[in-house]
Amino acid sequence: MMKSKFPFIAILALSLPLAANAHRAWVLPAATVLSGENAWVTFDAAVSNDIFYTDHAPMRLNGMKAIGPDGKEVSLQNPHTGKYRSSFDLELNKEGTYKVFSASSGLRARWETEDGKRGFWPGRGETPAPEEFKKAVPKNAKNLQVSQSSRRMETFVTAGQPNKTVFALQNAGLELQPITHPNDLFAGEKAEFRFFIDGKPAEGVEVTVIPDGSRYRNSPNEIKVQSDGKGVVSIEWPSAGRYWLEAEYQDDKAPAPATTRQGSYSATLEVLPQ
Protein backbone atom coordinates (compact mmCIF):
# COMPACT_ATOMS: atom_id res chain seq x y z
CA MET A 1 0.00 0.00 0.00
CA MET A 2 0.90 3.61 -0.40
CA LYS A 3 3.38 5.04 2.07
CA SER A 4 2.37 8.15 3.90
CA LYS A 5 3.65 10.34 6.69
CA PHE A 6 0.12 10.16 8.02
CA PRO A 7 -0.66 6.50 8.41
CA PHE A 8 -4.32 7.07 9.30
CA ILE A 9 -4.81 9.51 6.49
CA ALA A 10 -4.72 9.47 2.72
CA ILE A 11 -4.71 5.73 2.29
CA LEU A 12 -5.88 6.07 -1.23
CA ALA A 13 -6.85 9.05 -3.26
CA LEU A 14 -10.35 10.21 -2.39
CA SER A 15 -12.47 8.52 -4.92
CA LEU A 16 -16.04 8.23 -3.74
CA PRO A 17 -18.45 11.10 -4.04
CA LEU A 18 -18.37 12.03 -0.36
CA ALA A 19 -21.21 14.48 -0.80
CA ALA A 20 -23.59 11.76 -1.94
CA ASN A 21 -24.64 10.78 1.55
CA ALA A 22 -28.28 10.19 0.78
CA HIS A 23 -27.37 8.06 -2.17
CA ARG A 24 -25.76 4.68 -2.13
CA ALA A 25 -22.64 3.85 -4.04
CA TRP A 26 -22.42 0.30 -5.32
CA VAL A 27 -20.55 -1.93 -7.70
CA LEU A 28 -22.40 -4.96 -9.02
CA PRO A 29 -20.71 -7.99 -10.58
CA ALA A 30 -22.71 -9.89 -13.22
CA ALA A 31 -21.60 -13.15 -11.59
CA THR A 32 -19.64 -14.00 -8.44
CA VAL A 33 -18.95 -17.74 -8.75
CA LEU A 34 -17.17 -18.81 -11.92
CA SER A 35 -15.84 -22.06 -13.35
CA GLY A 36 -13.51 -22.83 -16.21
CA GLU A 37 -10.24 -21.27 -17.19
CA ASN A 38 -10.04 -17.58 -18.03
CA ALA A 39 -13.46 -16.53 -16.88
CA TRP A 40 -14.55 -12.93 -17.36
CA VAL A 41 -16.89 -10.91 -15.21
CA THR A 42 -18.48 -7.62 -16.13
CA PHE A 43 -19.37 -5.00 -13.50
CA ASP A 44 -21.69 -2.02 -13.21
CA ALA A 45 -20.88 0.80 -10.80
CA ALA A 46 -23.27 3.59 -9.91
CA VAL A 47 -24.67 5.87 -7.23
CA SER A 48 -28.41 5.70 -6.63
CA ASN A 49 -31.15 5.67 -3.99
CA ASP A 50 -32.56 2.32 -5.01
CA ILE A 51 -29.96 -0.40 -4.80
CA PHE A 52 -28.81 -1.72 -8.18
CA TYR A 53 -31.05 0.63 -10.20
CA THR A 54 -28.99 2.86 -12.42
CA ASP A 55 -31.10 6.00 -12.32
CA HIS A 56 -28.99 8.69 -10.71
CA ALA A 57 -25.26 8.98 -11.41
CA PRO A 58 -22.39 6.81 -12.59
CA MET A 59 -19.62 5.93 -10.18
CA ARG A 60 -16.36 7.50 -11.30
CA LEU A 61 -13.82 4.78 -11.90
CA ASN A 62 -10.66 6.71 -11.03
CA GLY A 63 -10.51 5.26 -7.51
CA MET A 64 -11.66 1.76 -8.43
CA LYS A 65 -9.10 -1.02 -8.22
CA ALA A 66 -8.98 -4.77 -8.30
CA ILE A 67 -6.63 -7.24 -6.69
CA GLY A 68 -6.28 -10.90 -7.56
CA PRO A 69 -5.97 -14.15 -5.56
CA ASP A 70 -2.21 -13.54 -5.21
CA GLY A 71 -2.73 -10.06 -3.75
CA LYS A 72 -1.44 -8.33 -6.88
CA GLU A 73 -3.32 -5.58 -8.65
CA VAL A 74 -5.36 -6.58 -11.70
CA SER A 75 -6.36 -4.00 -14.27
CA LEU A 76 -9.98 -3.12 -14.97
CA GLN A 77 -10.66 -3.64 -18.66
CA ASN A 78 -12.97 -1.86 -21.10
CA PRO A 79 -13.91 0.92 -18.68
CA HIS A 80 -16.83 3.07 -19.70
CA THR A 81 -18.69 5.84 -17.93
CA GLY A 82 -22.14 6.72 -19.19
CA LYS A 83 -24.96 8.90 -17.98
CA TYR A 84 -26.12 6.65 -15.16
CA ARG A 85 -23.52 3.97 -14.73
CA SER A 86 -19.93 3.00 -15.27
CA SER A 87 -18.97 -0.46 -16.39
CA PHE A 88 -15.78 -2.45 -16.69
CA ASP A 89 -14.61 -6.04 -17.09
CA LEU A 90 -12.27 -8.21 -15.09
CA GLU A 91 -10.37 -11.18 -16.48
CA LEU A 92 -9.98 -13.96 -13.93
CA ASN A 93 -6.94 -15.76 -15.24
CA LYS A 94 -5.88 -17.15 -11.88
CA GLU A 95 -7.84 -19.43 -9.61
CA GLY A 96 -9.17 -17.88 -6.42
CA THR A 97 -10.88 -14.79 -5.09
CA TYR A 98 -10.66 -11.30 -6.58
CA LYS A 99 -11.62 -8.08 -4.84
CA VAL A 100 -12.86 -4.96 -6.59
CA PHE A 101 -12.74 -1.99 -4.27
CA SER A 102 -12.52 1.69 -3.71
CA ALA A 103 -11.25 3.17 -0.44
CA SER A 104 -10.56 6.63 0.87
CA SER A 105 -10.05 8.44 4.12
CA GLY A 106 -9.29 11.85 5.48
CA LEU A 107 -10.02 14.53 8.01
CA ARG A 108 -13.29 16.40 7.95
CA ALA A 109 -14.16 19.41 10.02
CA ARG A 110 -17.34 21.37 10.81
CA TRP A 111 -17.61 24.51 12.88
CA GLU A 112 -19.45 27.77 13.44
CA THR A 113 -17.85 31.16 12.97
CA GLU A 114 -18.22 34.00 15.49
CA ASP A 115 -21.04 35.52 13.48
CA GLY A 116 -22.91 32.21 13.47
CA LYS A 117 -22.14 30.98 9.98
CA ARG A 118 -21.36 27.35 9.32
CA GLY A 119 -18.01 26.30 8.00
CA PHE A 120 -16.79 22.99 6.74
CA TRP A 121 -13.57 21.54 5.42
CA PRO A 122 -12.66 20.19 2.97
CA GLY A 123 -14.95 21.78 0.43
CA ARG A 124 -17.11 19.69 -1.80
CA GLY A 125 -15.04 17.60 -4.21
CA GLU A 126 -11.77 18.84 -2.73
CA THR A 127 -9.04 16.51 -1.57
CA PRO A 128 -6.60 18.69 0.33
CA ALA A 129 -3.49 17.42 2.09
CA PRO A 130 -4.15 16.82 5.80
CA GLU A 131 -1.62 19.46 6.86
CA GLU A 132 -3.85 22.12 5.34
CA PHE A 133 -6.28 21.49 8.16
CA LYS A 134 -4.66 24.08 10.45
CA LYS A 135 -4.81 26.79 7.82
CA ALA A 136 -8.38 26.02 6.81
CA VAL A 137 -10.04 26.15 10.21
CA PRO A 138 -10.31 29.61 11.81
CA LYS A 139 -8.66 29.97 15.23
CA ASN A 140 -11.84 31.25 16.80
CA ALA A 141 -14.10 28.54 15.38
CA LYS A 142 -16.91 27.51 17.73
CA ASN A 143 -18.31 24.00 18.18
CA LEU A 144 -15.47 22.61 16.14
CA GLN A 145 -15.98 18.98 15.23
CA VAL A 146 -13.17 17.15 13.53
CA SER A 147 -13.60 13.61 12.35
CA GLN A 148 -11.23 11.06 10.98
CA SER A 149 -13.44 9.58 8.33
CA SER A 150 -12.95 6.57 6.10
CA ARG A 151 -14.96 4.85 3.41
CA ARG A 152 -14.52 1.54 1.73
CA MET A 153 -16.61 -0.15 -0.91
CA GLU A 154 -15.97 -3.70 -2.08
CA THR A 155 -17.23 -6.68 -3.96
CA PHE A 156 -15.78 -10.13 -4.55
CA VAL A 157 -15.75 -12.70 -7.34
CA THR A 158 -14.16 -16.15 -7.36
CA ALA A 159 -12.89 -18.40 -10.12
CA GLY A 160 -12.68 -22.01 -8.95
CA GLN A 161 -11.69 -22.56 -5.34
CA PRO A 162 -12.13 -19.47 -3.12
CA ASN A 163 -9.12 -18.15 -1.18
CA LYS A 164 -8.64 -15.39 1.37
CA THR A 165 -5.57 -13.42 0.29
CA VAL A 166 -7.61 -10.36 -0.74
CA PHE A 167 -8.98 -10.04 2.80
CA ALA A 168 -5.60 -9.12 4.33
CA LEU A 169 -6.27 -6.12 6.57
CA GLN A 170 -4.93 -2.72 5.62
CA ASN A 171 -5.35 -1.69 9.27
CA ALA A 172 -7.00 1.55 8.17
CA GLY A 173 -10.66 2.47 8.38
CA LEU A 174 -13.54 0.03 8.69
CA GLU A 175 -12.76 -3.33 7.10
CA LEU A 176 -14.47 -6.69 6.76
CA GLN A 177 -12.84 -10.06 7.17
CA PRO A 178 -14.80 -13.18 6.32
CA ILE A 179 -15.51 -16.01 8.70
CA THR A 180 -17.88 -17.21 5.99
CA HIS A 181 -16.38 -16.57 2.56
CA PRO A 182 -18.49 -13.93 0.74
CA ASN A 183 -18.52 -16.05 -2.41
CA ASP A 184 -19.91 -19.02 -0.50
CA LEU A 185 -23.30 -17.67 0.58
CA PHE A 186 -26.46 -19.77 0.30
CA ALA A 187 -30.12 -19.07 1.01
CA GLY A 188 -31.27 -20.25 4.42
CA GLU A 189 -27.73 -20.37 5.79
CA LYS A 190 -25.98 -18.07 8.22
CA ALA A 191 -22.88 -16.10 7.30
CA GLU A 192 -20.47 -14.53 9.77
CA PHE A 193 -18.19 -11.59 9.08
CA ARG A 194 -15.79 -9.77 11.38
CA PHE A 195 -15.33 -6.01 11.30
CA PHE A 196 -12.16 -4.13 12.17
CA ILE A 197 -11.57 -0.44 12.76
CA ASP A 198 -8.00 0.64 12.08
CA GLY A 199 -6.97 -3.00 12.47
CA LYS A 200 -8.74 -3.69 15.80
CA PRO A 201 -12.02 -5.63 16.22
CA ALA A 202 -14.89 -3.13 15.97
CA GLU A 203 -17.73 -3.52 18.45
CA GLY A 204 -21.11 -1.97 17.79
CA VAL A 205 -20.82 -1.67 14.02
CA GLU A 206 -24.32 -1.00 12.65
CA VAL A 207 -24.86 -3.23 9.66
CA THR A 208 -27.77 -2.94 7.25
CA VAL A 209 -28.33 -5.49 4.53
CA ILE A 210 -30.70 -4.67 1.69
CA PRO A 211 -31.90 -7.25 -0.81
CA ASP A 212 -32.07 -6.48 -4.52
CA GLY A 213 -35.41 -5.85 -6.18
CA SER A 214 -36.86 -3.02 -4.06
CA ARG A 215 -38.67 -1.79 -7.17
CA TYR A 216 -40.92 -4.82 -7.04
CA ARG A 217 -41.99 -4.63 -3.41
CA ASN A 218 -43.32 -2.03 -1.01
CA SER A 219 -40.80 -2.25 1.81
CA PRO A 220 -37.01 -2.28 1.69
CA ASN A 221 -36.90 -5.56 3.73
CA GLU A 222 -33.70 -4.51 5.43
CA ILE A 223 -31.86 -6.79 7.81
CA LYS A 224 -30.20 -4.90 10.65
CA VAL A 225 -27.52 -6.39 12.87
CA GLN A 226 -24.81 -5.10 15.19
CA SER A 227 -21.31 -6.45 15.70
CA ASP A 228 -20.44 -8.04 19.05
CA GLY A 229 -17.36 -7.49 21.20
CA LYS A 230 -15.24 -9.42 18.75
CA GLY A 231 -16.49 -7.39 15.81
CA VAL A 232 -18.57 -10.31 14.54
CA VAL A 233 -21.95 -10.08 12.84
CA SER A 234 -24.14 -12.98 11.83
CA ILE A 235 -26.57 -12.68 8.94
CA GLU A 236 -29.09 -15.31 7.87
CA TRP A 237 -29.96 -15.05 4.19
CA PRO A 238 -33.72 -15.26 3.71
CA SER A 239 -33.52 -15.95 -0.01
CA ALA A 240 -31.17 -16.13 -2.96
CA GLY A 241 -30.25 -12.94 -4.77
CA ARG A 242 -27.98 -9.95 -4.63
CA TYR A 243 -27.59 -7.96 -1.46
CA TRP A 244 -26.03 -4.66 -0.57
CA LEU A 245 -24.39 -4.54 2.84
CA GLU A 246 -23.64 -1.26 4.54
CA ALA A 247 -21.74 -0.91 7.82
CA GLU A 248 -21.25 2.22 9.92
CA TYR A 249 -18.98 2.72 12.89
CA GLN A 250 -18.20 5.69 15.08
CA ASP A 251 -16.22 6.32 18.26
CA ASP A 252 -14.11 9.03 19.90
CA LYS A 253 -10.78 7.22 19.67
CA ALA A 254 -9.39 9.42 16.95
CA PRO A 255 -5.82 10.66 16.57
CA ALA A 256 -5.49 14.47 17.05
CA PRO A 257 -6.65 16.80 15.69
CA ALA A 258 -9.70 14.60 15.07
CA THR A 259 -12.13 14.10 17.94
CA THR A 260 -14.28 11.42 16.37
CA ARG A 261 -13.49 8.46 14.22
CA GLN A 262 -15.99 7.35 11.57
CA GLY A 263 -15.79 4.37 9.32
CA SER A 264 -18.15 3.32 6.63
CA TYR A 265 -18.02 0.12 4.62
CA SER A 266 -20.22 -1.34 1.92
CA ALA A 267 -20.18 -4.51 -0.12
CA THR A 268 -22.25 -6.18 -2.79
CA LEU A 269 -22.87 -9.87 -2.07
CA GLU A 270 -24.56 -12.64 -3.97
CA VAL A 271 -26.50 -15.41 -2.24
CA LEU A 272 -27.16 -18.57 -4.25
CA PRO A 273 -30.14 -20.91 -4.00
CA GLN A 274 -29.68 -24.32 -2.38
Partner: peptide, 12 residues
Protein backbone atom coordinates in the same frame (compact mmCIF):
# COMPACT_ATOMS: atom_id res chain seq x y z
CA UNK B 1 -10.20 -24.73 -24.96
CA UNK B 2 -12.22 -26.58 -22.31
CA UNK B 3 -15.04 -24.14 -22.92
CA UNK B 4 -17.49 -26.63 -21.47
CA UNK B 5 -16.02 -26.09 -17.99
CA UNK B 6 -17.54 -22.63 -17.95
CA UNK B 7 -20.95 -24.05 -16.98
CA UNK B 8 -19.80 -26.53 -14.34
CA UNK B 9 -20.70 -23.94 -11.71
CA UNK B 10 -24.36 -24.22 -12.71
CA UNK B 11 -24.43 -27.49 -10.77
CA UNK B 12 -24.27 -25.21 -7.77
Amino acid sequence: DDKGEQWLKDMR
